[in-house]
């Protein structure tokens, strides 16, 4: 039972940074913009979070600063891609390179220094219930916040008029513009929201997951989030499922290694990637479903007619 609890809670925690970053990118892509800079924004968020926390300021402020820093970093992409209409792939990649460098500079003073970590909540009464308590009621606040964000984003995109407008812009910015929606402004907001979420994902890594700053500590999680959005066919619930699948396979392969399963560690290490891609591709292989959810104007620059 303890082993099951360890695998279950490990999965939830490992998936959290991916969920933040991927849900943010979902909103960006739903508005028709492709931002490949997730890794860079996560790193900036991670470094700024530790910076603020290291300066002795309270944890909520550190988390908010990380989100703000992610949003600020995303503006760099926004200006390039939305105002100057540069190629979105190139602008996103340059944001990743920029973010990697900037985060290294920010983090120079406290590399590998110990900091206070975001600790799991002790919910009175609930946390003490055997089995159920450790399974569901013993996470840090950001884990619960990621679930709240999942609910909010799903509701926003599919149940509100504003969400419909975002999705319409992702389908046809020309029509939306013709009806009178401020396409560029809304895309800016989406990009900044994506940046804030990536910043939160980064802060989760550096303040809760492995509470310290190390250069390049995301180790590719931004790219995994990006792939999740695509393989999940732009549906929030599938992103959640994909992140859990990836997290659980990571933990199961580690358990397998430690138990001495007779497979080389190299093979086991590749399992999470293979399993997640295969499963998500299989469940999303319906062309109609894909066409319905794919934002048609994705990565295409849009200039409003004068």
């Amino acid at each position: 039972m303890d082993l099951f609890i360890a695998i279950f809670t490990g999965t939830i925690i490992a998936a959290t940074p991916l969920i933040f970053a991927a849900l943010g990118e979902l909103v960006v892509e739903k508005s028709g913009v492709l931002n490949l800079g997730i890794e860079g924004m996560m790193l900036v968020g991670a470094a700024v979070g530790v910076w603020v926390s290291y300066a002795g300021l309270p944890m909520p402020l550190a988390i908010m600063s990380a989100a703000a820093a992610g949003a600020l970093a995303s503006l760099l992409f926004g200006v390039l891609a939305l105002t100057f209409l540069t190629n979105q792939y190139a602008a996103g990649l340059s944001l990743t390179i920029f973010g990697t460098g900037v985060s290294a500079v920010i983090g120079k003073g406290f590399g590998s220094a110990p900091i206070d970590a975001l600790i799991p909540l002790e919910i009175p009464f609930l946390t003490e219930i055997p089995v159920i308590g450790p399974l569901f009621f013993n996470y840090d606040p950001l884990v619960y916040f990621s679930f709240i964000m999942f609910g909010l984003i799903s509701w926003f995109l599919y149940k509100t008029k504003a969400g419909l407008v975002v999705r319409t812009i992702g389908e046809s910015p020309e029509s939306s513009h013709a009806i009178g929606y401020p396409v560029i402004k809304i895309r800016y907001l989406a990009v900044m929201f994506g940046g804030a979420m990536a910043g939160l994902g980064g802060a989760y890594l550096s303040l809760a997951y492995t509470p310290l700053w190390v250069e390049n500590m995301t180790a590719g999680k931004g790219w995994i989030s990006l792939a999740l959005v695509v393989f999940a066919a732009w549906r929030p619930a599938r992103i959640l499922f994909g992140a859990w699948l990836f997290g659980s396979m990571t933990i199961l392969q580690l358990q397998g290694q430690a138990l001495g399963i007779s497979l080389p560690s190299e093979v086991l290490s590749s399992l999470p990637y293979i399993a997640t891609i295969v499963v998500l591709v299989v469940i999303s292989k319906n062309w109609q479903f894909l066409a319905l959810n794919f934002p048609t104007s994705l990565a295409k620059p849009f200039r409003p007619a004068e």
Binding site: G10, A14, L205, N216, M217, A219, G220, K221, T250, A258
Partner: peptide
């Protein structure tokens, strides 16, 4: 280099 994976390990 992968602190996250190291933690899970």
């Amino acid at each position: 280099f992968d602190p996250g994976k190291e933690k899970e390990a």
